[in-house]
Every structure is written in C-alpha cells, then in structure tokens.
C-alpha cells in the first residue's frame, strides 16, 4: 500500500472572488514508502500549494488525500497527528527560529508531540548529530549562527519529530554551492539511515537528478508526469518544451544521439556519463 495517495486533488485560491485561481488541478499520485522524490516545476506551477496539502495545512477544495490509506480530512480532530507524521520544512526555514537556544528550538516539535523529557533530549541530540550541528551550539542563541547553520537547525527542528514522510521546500535556496551540497548530502544520508520517505521541492534539475529516485513534474497547476528519473529524462524534449531545464550532461548526450552516437541509456549525472563512456571505451579495447 502506498504511504501517500491523492485522488483528484484540487485547490482553488480565493474561491468566489474576482481573484479566483486554480492552484492545483486534479492531481492523482501515489508515493510508495521509502521513496526519494524530487518535485520540480516553475514558480507558480503549484508545487508549494501541493505539498502544503500533504500535511493538512491546506484543505483541498475537492478531492482527497490518503496517508497510510486513511483519508486525512475524515476526522478534523486528528489533523495535528498528520502533521507529526508528515514533516514539512518551508522555504527559508531559518526565519521561523524563535527560541532562546538551539536545543529548545529543535525540541519545539517533539515537545508538541507530547514526548517525555528523556526522549526529547535523545531525539534532539541524535538529529543534531545527523545534521552536523556541534554539541557546543546547543546552549547558544540560534540568532548568533551563520545562515547555513541556522538553516540546519531549522531543518533539525522538523527532522526531530521523526516524520514518516519528510518534505522540504527548496532546502538549498540561497546557499552557496558548498552549503547546498552539505544540506543535500545530509538529507540523502537521513533518507538512507531512517528509510523514511523524502520529498524535495527544487528548481535545480541537476540536484534533483543527482539525489532523487523519482521525479514529479508540475506544470501550470497540473501534474505533468511522475516517474523514475530515467523515464522522466527520456522525455527531456517535452520537459524542455514546457520551459524546464534538463541537466547539462543530458543535453550533451542528447546532442550526441542526434549525431548518431547512442549509448542506449538516459544519462543525467556526470558520474553516470563517466561510467558509460569508460564502458564503451573498454568494449572497443581502447583502454
């Protein structure tokens, strides 16, 4: 059974006013447990609206969302439990830090869950370790930290709730390339270690191709496709047509194919390209 499923999920902003706008339109997806999903699309394509439905922050105008097979809106009282099950990290999460020290801020979510002091402490230290937040930071004010450190503390605040599904909206926005790699590696690590389902909203095709197993493409409020990375990039021409980039390396290999040099596989990371080329050279006996 899929862990998350939507049925004709539709959301309309400002319904009944002149500003009415369909933000997501009849989305049907099924996400399996333990998958690492990249969500891509233009600004305003409905990505952020879509993910806010997954943890019950927005109630769909029509359609349903199932988590573990249960309709989350069948009992409104339980919506808070859904938010613990599905952790959502917003864009620029460092702007929601508010506690006097790092420990308390990370502990805010677990505390709301009603865990015992001991368990809260365990979770906070475990998560901090995972996110490479040094222990001597715990007593410091979150506002003294650097931008990248604040970001990690904020992400830790959600991760410490141990959600079954972790969703991050552009976790690397505004960071330098090094900081971006650190954050994405940490998330990948978390995924491997906990086996939980992870979804990342991103603008960058390169990053998504590198980290995700499956990709969900949104276009103009509608689901363009949801498939494995390989299958999505097989449609790279269509993806470029709706105005999204494909990774540079994919473009190079598409060009090679149009010149008659085919590798038979979709190439979307530099590592993979290297393997494929080495394989070919070996086969031809050149190395």
């Amino acid at each position: 059974m899929s862990i998350l499923k939507t049925e004709n999920l539709t959301y309309v902003y400002s319904q009944g006013t002149p500003f009415e706008k369909i933000a997501v339109n009849k989305i049907n997806i099924e996400i399996e447990k333990g998958e690492f999903v990249g969500i891509i699309g233009h600004t305003g394509s409905g990505k952020s609206t879509l993910i806010q439905h997954f943890n019950g922050l927005l109630q769909p105008t029509s359609g349903k969302i199932f988590i573990d097979g249960n309709d989350i809106w069948s009992n409104k009282e339980n919506i808070r439990q859904v938010r613990f099950k599905v952790g959502l990290v917003f864009q620029y999460p460092e702007y929601q830090l508010f506690e006097e020290n790092v420990f308390k801020d990370i502990a805010f979510g677990p505390k709301n869950m009603g865990l015992s002091e001991k368990e809260i402490k365990e979770r906070v230290y475990d998560t901090a370790k995972l996110l490479e937040i040094p222990e001597n930071f715990m007593k410091r004010s979150p506002f003294e930290l650097s931008g990248g450190q604040k970001r990690r503390v904020a992400i830790a605040g959600v991760m410490a709730m141990n959600p079954e599904i972790l969703i991050l909206d552009e976790p690397s926005a505004g960071l330098d390339p090094h900081g971006r790699d650190i954050i994405l590696d940490i998330i990948k690590n978390y995924h491997k270690k906990t086996g939980s389902t992870v979804m990342i909203v991103s603008h960058s095709m390169e990053d998504t191709a590198k980290y995700a197993e499956k990709i969900l493409v949104m276009n103009k409020s509608e689901l363009f496709c949801y498939d494995t990375v390989e299958n999505v990039f097989r449609r790279s021409e269509e993806i470029e047509k709706i105005g999204l980039d494909v990774p540079q390396i994919t473009r190079v290999f598409n060009k090679l194919r149009s010149h008659g040099i085919s590798f038979g596989k979709e190439i979307y990371t530099v590592e993979r390209a290297r393997e494929v080329i080495l394989d070919m050279l070996k086969k031809e006996g050149r190395i």
Binding site: Q52, N55, L57, R80, R83, F84, G87, L88, V89, F90, P93, Y95, Q96, F108, G109, N112, M113, G157, V158, M161
Partner: peptide
C-alpha cells in the same frame, strides 16, 4: 501567514 503555517507544521497549537 507563512510563519503561522510553518509553526503549525511543527505541531504548534
């Protein structure tokens, strides 16, 4: 609005 959503996501009541 954004901050309220973010804190709700962390279980704030």
């Amino acid at each position: 609005d954004k901050i309220i959503s973010a804190q709700k996501a962390r279980g704030a009541e």
